[in-house]
Each structure stands twice: as structure tokens, then as C-alpha cells.
Amino acid sequence: MNGQPSLVLRIGLPLGFGIAVLVLWELFVVTFDIPRAILPAPSEIWAAIQRSTEILWVDWVQTVLKGALTGLVIGAVAGFAAALAIDRVDFLRRGLLPVANFVAALPIVGVAPIMVMWFGFDWQSKAAVVVVMVFFPILVNTLAGLAATDRMQRDLMRTYSANHTQTLGKLRLPAAMPFIFNGLKISATLALIGAIVAEYFGSPTKGMGFRISTEVGRLGIDMVWAEIAVSALTGTVLYGFVVLIERWVTFWHPSQRRSR
């Protein structure tokens, strides 16, 4: 229990656990002779990934690049801008914050069929679902972050005779960054869920959600697992990317400091 564990341990142990799970999975499937239509072995999934890289790539572009990421960027920018606007008017803040907090807890995935009806089957409807899903977590977190400075700090800015923009840019936005990144982390995982869910309500003949639902019907279970692997990797990388930017932006925050 002395201080931080070494980097080798921090990466090696989880990695080892992951590999152990894969090995056990492979052994389990081989020894009990599980039919491929129920649970394919990791080696078979890997073979499926190699066999159909092209399809996986097309699906990935359709779902992740066009659907999830477009929606994530639009929704995050809109939520952030709305938070800045609401923050300027005290009346709006008192009225909208409870409403936004409430909406953020609702199962917003339910708007997926409505968006598909409004914007058609292609990626626009998927992006729209993601925009709606991502908007509220970002809005709520940004507002909470903007309120995170204390009286003393704001008074200090006033003694410097800083105007609203200066106080915002130099004090309140930096202080809000940990909150905003918290919202972004939630949003990054929601974006993928939203884009895939919307595809279950109708999609062109490509996309990860479309492929999963059709391959389940055709008992192409190894292909389903290949899509799952790709989506899992995408989700993790997207999350990791947000964490990296967070480290870079909020290097000053206590949670980011390394013990030296």
C-alpha cells in the first residue's frame, strides 16, 4: 500500500484480466462444443472481422462518423451555447435548470422513432437523436460548472473591474471545465447508444445497428460479435479521447495532478 502502483501494474493487470477472459471464453466454447449460432469463440469472431473488414468499415462510417459524431458535436455545441445564454439571465436559470435536470433523467432514447419519422432513414435522423440525447447532460453540467465559482473569487474579479466576458473567460469557464468534461464523458457513450438505437427504427442497408439486427435474423452471430467488438473499441477510444483532452485542458485541477 505504498503510494501509486507502477505503470506496469496499472496497465498489465487489467490487460491480463482481459486476455484471461478471452482465453477462458475460447476454452469454454471449444470444450463444451457450443454451437456457433449461440456463442462463437473469440478466434472465430476475429476471423469474421478479418473476412468482412470492408462491411465493418462502411457500417462504422455510417453509424459512428455520420450519425454519432456529427450529433455529438452539434449537441455539445448547442448545449454549451444554451448554457451560456441561460446563465446570463437569472430568471431563465431559475426556471430552466429544474426542467433541464428533470429532462436529463428521462429516457430520451424514446425520441428515436420520432426523429426517424421526421428526418428519414438516413444518418440525419441518427444524428438528430444523438443531438437531443447529448444536449441535456451538457447543458446541465455546464450550468452546474458555471455556478462552481465561489463568492470570493467573483468578488476578486469585480475588484479587478472585469466585465462579464472577462469573468467568464478567465474565471468561470476554466472553473467549469471539469463539469463540462464530465458531461462530455457521459455524452460520448450516449452518442453511440443513440445512433445505434435509432437504426433499429429504420435505416439504409448499412450501419452497425442495421447489421446487428439483420445478422441476428440470419444467425450470423460471429458477424454480430464482430460489430460488437468494433463498437466496444470505438466507445472506449472515444471516451479515452475525451479523457485525454480533459487532461490537457484541466491540468491544474486536483484530480489530474500526479503525486510526485
Binding site: 457513450t189 433499429y200 452471430i221 454480430v224 460488437i228 471516451y239
Partner: peptide, 16 residues
């Protein structure tokens, strides 16, 4: 792995 599990979209896993 608990963190990674949340970054995996559940919808993809659901049919399996």
C-alpha cells in the same frame, strides 16, 4: 473494466 463496460454501447450487446 468497469469503466470500459460503460463505454460499450449496450444496444449492440442486447441481442446477444
Amino acid at each position: 473494466w468497469a469503466i470500459i463496460s460503460q463505454t460499450i454501447p449496450v444496444v449492440a450487446l442486447a441481442p446477444m
